[in-house]
């Protein structure tokens, strides 16, 4: 384990940024977001960013390929961003777990090479949550905010920052930073115990997820409660866009006037034209769209992925849904149905 006085945090950031592009969660426009580090930038005081760390690996839009049209000739242009190594510092445990979920989708055959490139290039340094919010329920998915994972993990305790590598990539990064001093591995035990004392008190941390599996799929699907749950949903898709694990995208063409830029952009199962087909849409009302989102996270994903849920309990959809409907309310209501 390594340590550094917190007063030298900016020196650490500068040293990392000297080697490769660094992103840290900082305040801009009244909220925290991952921003490219520039000299003197301050780490946010907010617990988590409004948008998740997913954005750095699976951005909202990216170009896939371009076509140039000249007369009757079409040339294909490579528009792929080759990317470069980068570090993202300050990822919370929930977001760090979301990469495991996204990996299962994008890195299984056929591999999404755009995502893969960013995963290879990116080093994730996590940060333990000393002050979880009431909306946090990562514990329900076995995530420990006191042991945040990633390539390297960081803790803040008193006036000191502690860092510990978890992977080869993390080791490489930490050993390249001479301003870090060695220290004992149990230096963070106290702060970990303090975090656990808080997580014990989190109101949603013990969300009961029994019965959310493939065996109860039809029971959940046919639950009459979906009508009530979805009745005031605006179909806005905020919940899917702030979610660190939502992975759907659409491929669109942009007419540049002398060619086409083919790009992909996030899509949301909450939208009326999601997976639109020639016959029309297979989810005709908001009820079916709403059901898809929660069935995917709580039932379909785990039944196809060894029981791993498609939610990490980050609480973003709880804080951001305009009508305050969310996965916890859904899970509790549906849970009643299988008891």
């Amino acid at each position: 384990m390594k340590q550094l006085a917190l007063s030298k945090l900016n020196e650490l950031f500068a040293a990392m940024a000297a080697q490769q592009q660094l992103y840290i969660p900082a305040d801009k426009g009244g909220q925290a977001q991952f921003l490219p580090y520039v000299d003197g930038m301050e780490l946010t005081k907010s617990l988590n960013t409004a948008r998740s760390a997913k954005d750095l690996f699976f951005p909202q839009t990216e170009d896939i390929v371009g076509f140039q049209v000249k007369g009757t000739e079409i040339t294909i242009e490579e528009t792929r961003d080759p990317g470069a190594p980068f570090v993202v510092f300050g990822v919370r445990a929930c977001d760090a777990r979301s990469f495991e979920i996204l990996d299962r989708v994008f890195l299984s055959d056929p591999v999404d090479t755009f995502y893969e490139t960013r995963r290879t290039n990116g080093t994730v340094v996590t940060l333990a949550c000393t002050r979880p919010e009431e909306t946090c329920f990562c514990g329900a998915f076995g995530i420990d905010p006191a042991n945040p994972g990633g390539d390297a993990a960081a803790w803040m305790a008193g006036e000191t920052l502690y860092l510990k590598a978890n992977t080869k990539k993390g080791e490489k990064l930490l050993s390249s930073l001479p301003l870090l001093a060695d220290c004992d591995d149990n230096a963070v035990e106290t702060v970990q115990a303090e975090i656990h004392a808080i997580t014990e008190k989190l109101p949603l941390n013990k969300l009961d997820l029994t019965g959310f599996d493939g065996d109860h799929l039809m029971e959940h699907f046919n639950n009459p409660a979906w009508s009530k749950l979805s009745e005031s949903c605006l179909g806005c898709g905020t919940c899917t866009f702030v979610c660190p694990t939502c992975q759907c995208y659409d491929v669109r063409d942009f007419d540049t006037g002398h060619g086409v830029r083919r790009f992909r952009c996030w899509d949301s199962c909450m939208y009326s034209d999601f997976t639109m087909m020639a016959h029309g849409t297979n989810r005709p009302t908001q009820k079916e769209r709403f059901r898809q989102r929660f069935m995917h996270k709580l039932v379909y994903f785990p039944s196809n992925n060894d029981g791993i849920y498609g939610c990490v309990g980050c609480g973003r959809c709880l804080a951001k849904c305009p009508i305050s409907m969310n996965i916890v309310k859904v899970a509790k209501t549906l849970g009643e149905g299988t008891k």
Partner: peptide, 27 residues
């Protein structure tokens, strides 16, 4: 600075009482 933060979730439109078109042109 403000609008570049937009994630085009459309919540502003969907909640707006003045936006009640059956099918929004953007959809």
């Amino acid at each position: 600075g403000e609008l570049s933060k937009c994630i085009r979730c459309n919540a502003c439109r969907n909640v707006c009482p003045a936006c009640t078109c059956e099918k929004c042109v953007f959809d």
